[in-house]
């Protein structure tokens, strides 16, 4: 990854997301999901499920899995990996950094 080309966008305050939870973030006509893991790390993926374009931020986070609120498609939000039917297409992930209590999303 060429970090020099990364455009860091302030998404939210770090404490706006509970541990083991997810928040929706819309930017420039696209929607993203930002996660805070049970071990207090932050991650980001595309906001819509790869199965039927549903907002993942309405879904349930358990450990490192986000489950789509529509048909329970599951992804590892750290890697974007689809964890089985009905989802078979991985989620795109984005780099995240914390700075001054804010969560920044790294967009190309």
């Amino acid at each position: 990854m060429n970090t020099a080309a990364t455009n860091w966008i302030a998404a939210c305050d770090a404490d706006e997301i509970d541990e083991e939870d997810v928040m929706r973030f819309d930017h420039d006509g696209r929607t993203y999901a930002i996660y805070r893991s049970p071990d207090d790390e932050y991650f980001a993926t595309d906001g819509l499920c790869t199965h039927e374009q549903i907002h993942l931020a309405d879904g349930l986070v358990m450990d490192h899995i986000i489950e789509c609120p529509k048909h329970n498609g599951r992804f590892d939000y750290r890697t974007g990996q689809a964890k089985g039917a009905p989802v078979c297409v991985n989620l795109k992930t984005y780099p995240v950094k914390l700075d001054g209590g804010k969560v920044f999303l790294g967009l190309a």
Partner: peptide, 11 residues
């Protein structure tokens, strides 16, 4: 609305 109920039903 799906976004309101889905997580709760899953739990």
């Amino acid at each position: 609305p799906n976004g309101k109920i889905a997580r709760e039903v899953r739990l």
